[in-house]
Design a protein around this nucleic acid. Structure first.
Lengths: 159, 159
DNA sequence: GACCATTGAGTTGTGCACAACTTAATTGTG
DNA sequence: CACAATTAAGTTGTGCACAACTCAATGGTC
């Protein structure tokens, strides 16, 4: 393989990258998923459900719209997920009085109680990464930058 | 908010981190997914299907087992995916003669031809990230390190 | 050679992500 | 006020990820 200047990558370079950043990202995301699955099993929550509960624990009552903004999910994903949480007795769903289009989600007593049992999860996750706080903060910043760039590109293509 | 030493993060720090690295990772992964979806639409491929085709373009005929190892996917995911690729006329599936348990996947002529049309995708993805080659390589290394650590932790918990 | 554990694909069932659509409530404008 | 456009949830359909399972082929081991 011949040497190339770092600023003039070949098609081959791109082809290799291709199966890489996104693939590595995907793999890391799924690896997190596996660990969360194990840690959340006792609580009877999936990772997306756990994210919803995190928001509710912090904010109390939250409209579906706001949940979607926070978690980057649309109603097509949230509606059935929230129904399952409701069926599990962890949240309530009620139409807003001021705006009948809006539905407010609140944790039930059981849902709120789950917070204690979930308290250990974040620390165990952080420990499992083997990363220090600074590393994590740095990685997060890069990923967020990446997401912003990709969203912009998708929007540009989408036109 | 009070200042803390970097090496003694509080529970609050962990709770905040929690909704962060994994969440950022997830968001980035999905942002990639959205861009790939747009770019692959003309080819009639989803991102996972594209990954399979990448392997086939590079290696020709590959047993399902090997595909699973490469892509970190099990037969529960691959079997239906490969059936869809077969239905689309992009791959063939045949039982191995030496080992009747094994199924070999090969690109058809149409599947191989798709390679040309997909050639642009990697460069456009790389451009969309806004990252240089060095940044991408570095990020990939961090993510792979993360995945390894998480897999080890999951295995340890799994016991 | 018979028996049993292992292996590779496939199937079934659950849940998430997302596109495309529907429905009902609200808002804006003539 | 009326009516069109917008907005918030929800529904439907497709595809992926994964656990748990089945089934047939293979490879020891006695």
């Amino acid at each position: 393989m011949t040497e190339r200047l770092a600023d003039t990558p070949s098609d081959q370079d791109f082809l290799r990258l291709d199966g890489q950043i996104c693939f590595s990202l995907n793999a890391a995301s799924r690896a997190f998923g596996s660990l969360y699955r194990v840690l959340l099993k006792d609580l009877g929550l999936t990772y997306p459900q756990y994210l919803v509960m995190l928001v509710l624990w912090e904010q109390g009552t939250v409209p579906v719209k706001e949940l979607g903004r926070s978690l980057r999910l649309d109603s097509g994903t949230l509606s059935p997920l929230l129904k399952r949480l409701e069926a599990a007795g962890l949240v309530t769903r009620e139409r807003s009085a001021e705006d009948e289009r809006s539905v407010h989600i609140s944790p039930t007593a059981a849902g709120a109680a789950l917070r204690e049992r979930a308290a250990e999860v974040p620390r165990r996750i952080a420990a499992a990464t083997g990363f220090g706080l600074a590393d994590i903060v740095d990685l997060r910043a890069r990923l967020d930058r990446l997401t912003t760039a990709l969203d912009a590109a998708t929007a540009a293509e989408g036109v």
